[in-house]
Design a protein around this nucleic acid. Structure first.
Lengths: 201, 201
DNA sequence: ACGGTGATGAGACTAAGTCCCATCACTTGT
DNA sequence: ACAAGTGATGGGACTTAGTCTCATCACCGT
């Protein structure tokens, strides 16, 4: 047994292990669910992940971001819209994007985790603000992606907005199902529902 | 001249004057425009208004809220939707609400002030988050107001969302005009444009 | 064994936001 | 006129978010 085995931090078995960001995100979600977002300190999160406060802020811009860092939804949606067949209408391209989201992000395996995350967000206005802004950014990205398909500005904006609404509705339905229902199918249905509703306005 | 004329704070001519909240809001907008939101301290704002930090937080929940406190848009929109003729379609009721906003809030006299405020918001993500959440709340309120008119849930939601989009677009157009164009008219046009675009999706 | 690189920790620092308590101006009742 | 009450305010102590700098540690190649 060399003397290195007794170096303090190595014994803790946390520093220097990989996936610091992921560990921090999990610790944060656990703590937020246990005691609430406001009763959880950044230092609490870092300690549970076996890290220090400095490291937390090296991985995340701020305390809210720890719940939003992972997804990379943006590129996924814009690429799916770009990859939609040239003959597709704007809303069909958006449907293509929601399909991709169902395949890559809103998978059955992640459903419970994502629902837990959403419950935490729903309980805290600060987190809802961050989510609202992220959603605006997604809509802007989808709008741009549609414009690159030569969709007129206003039409692109409306299609992106309706897509976002359909996505929100689909998410609500999906996160409540106990059956392992497929997000993509639910989203397609939601988009159809939304489109039908526009006619009744 | 009595000794009271020499009491320190009274000489400053700011404490105890009315409209503390309004004074704070104006001081804040001025400072944000001058040096930027992040380079302005709550203490700076309070000092320019001739008040203390405690008083600032007595009037506003937090630093962001000082830019969003006044409007009371919520009641205005919901009441206008409720007051729309019973024969009006959902989108017509929403148009009624945008009309009210043009009459009571987005008046020609306030155009410059509001545009200045919007420029400050556009320059800062923190403020955009707050604005995004306020917008979500407005959409929720309009949705509820429409439901109270016996509009089906989903239709209400879509109509509110389209109304919010039209409002955003109208606001963009209105705040750029140099002519004293009427917000209500611009909003009606924007709503027509949006509605026409839904058909092209 | 040596030095370089990248991730980390510790601590000082600023500002947001909360809380408590004393102070002040104004009002009311006597 | 005066005393007590009321409501708005100021000040300062306190906690936490977030920034920044510097030293330390593990790992990798030489």
């Amino acid at each position: 047994m060399s003397s290195r085995d007794q170096v303090p931090y190595t014994v803790l078995m946390a520093r220097w292990e990989p996936n610091a960001a992921e560990r921090l995100a999990h610790a944060a979600l656990d703590l937020f669910a246990e005691r609430g977002y406001e009763n959880t300190t950044v230092i609490d999160i870092a300690q549970r992940a076996g890290l220090g406060k400095s490291t937390f802020f090296r991985h995340f811009q701020d305390k809210r971001e720890v719940l939003f860092g992972g997804s990379a939804m943006d590129g996924l949606l814009t690429e799916a819209i770009a990859a939609a067949p040239a003959t597709a209408t704007p809303l069909e391209a958006v449907a293509h994007a929601l399909d991709a989201a169902g395949r890559e992000v809103f998978t059955p395996a992640r459903r419970e985790f994502i629902a837990r995350r959403q419950a935490v967000i729903a309980a805290n206005p600060e987190l809802q603000e961050r989510e609202a802004l992220k959603n605006l950014a997604l809509i802007a990205s989808m709008t741009d992606a549609l414009k690159r398909r030569s969709v007129p500005d206003l039409t692109a904006r409306v299609a992106a907005e309706l897509g976002a609404l359909a996505s929100t509705i689909a998410f609500e339905r999906w996160s409540q199902t106990t059956t392992g229902a497929d997000f993509s199918e639910i989203a397609r249905q939601a988009l159809d529902d939304v489109q039908a509703s526009t006619a009744l306005c």
